[in-house]
Simulated scan of single mutants.
Amino acid sequence: MSAAPSAFADAGSPSAQRAAQLVEKATGTADLAPDAPVAGSPARALTATAAGTATVTAPATSVGAVSAGLPTGGTLSLGLPGTAAVTGSRQADGTVVYPDAAKDADLAVQPTKEGGARTLVTLKDSSAPTTWRFPLALPEGAAAQLQVDGSILVSRGDEVLGSFDAPWATDAAGRPVPTSYRLEGATLVQTVEANAATAFPVVADPWWKPTSWHVPKFAKCVAKNSMGGAAAGIVGGAFAGGVGAGPGGFIGALGGAANGAVTC
């Protein structure tokens, strides 16, 4: 059973302000979505897209999940890796922070203007964990697959729903820190490879970006660019995996097209 939530975090508290400053130094704030308040959440964003309205809701506490309503229907959620139930606090520019929500770490959520969300971990010092586990729940019939560029593509039938961008992490000096994703059942796992040269704190995130396009529309392009590769994913919340050519390579090429890596 999780711990009872603490009192609502004060947006003006030193710990909340500091947590937001560290995150916003790494990410900037220009792409953060305006708030559309809803009861029970520190922040919600509604974004109009060509396919419909995308809704992102930050959880009330750090043991909840970021909920992303997809423009074409269904909801994707990404659980926060908090170990203490810290209540979220929305800062002036739109970042929701959960100070000290895990060992030597802060958590944060940033709804973004394209209808997506960054889910951020700030490692305060070298004693912070370097592996972070985010429970992932997909819409019915959807699948998540790891791509060759390190991103994770989410699709449902012949429709690409969106992706988690290739992982990134940056240290206090603005230098990139090696990081990677893997899928373990219905969990997205991010590993941050800090070393003796890393300047703490380090900020890292899975960044969800929705989209909506169909495989047949890109079939000619993908056929030209696809290649065999490893793929592992979850289907509607249940684990499914595959290695080699075929669907994995095909979806890999789709991921490249979605992220601009494939030219047609």
Rank of each mutant, 00 (worst) to 15 (best):
S2C: 03
S2N: 14
A3C: 03
S6Y: 14
F8L: 12
A9G: 12
R18D: 14
L22H: 01
E24Q: 08
P34L: 03
D35V: 12
P37N: 03
V38L: 06
A39L: 07
A45E: 15
A48D: 11
T55R: 12
V56M: 03
T57C: 01
P59T: 13
A60E: 10
T61G: 15
G64V: 02
A65K: 04
A68E: 13
G69T: 01
G69H: 07
L70V: 03
T72K: 00
G73W: 07
L78K: 08
T83K: 04
D100K: 13
D106K: 04
V109Y: 03
K113Y: 00
R118P: 04
S127M: 05
S127W: 08
T130M: 12
R133W: 01
R133Q: 10
P135W: 07
L138C: 09
L138W: 00
E140N: 06
G141Q: 04
Q145D: 07
V154A: 15
V154L: 15
S155P: 00
D158A: 09
V160W: 08
D165V: 13
W168M: 06
A169R: 04
D171S: 06
A173G: 02
T179M: 14
A186C: 02
A186T: 08
T187P: 06
V189G: 02
T191K: 09
E193G: 04
E193M: 08
A194N: 02
A194K: 01
N195T: 12
T198S: 10
T198R: 03
P201L: 08
A204T: 15
D205M: 06
P210K: 12
T211G: 15
P216A: 03
F218I: 09
C221T: 12
A223C: 05
A230L: 14
A231E: 11
V235R: 08
G237H: 00
G237A: 06
F239P: 15
G242P: 01
G244V: 01
A245G: 15
G252K: 00
G252S: 10
A257V: 15
A257E: 01
G260N: 07
A261D: 12
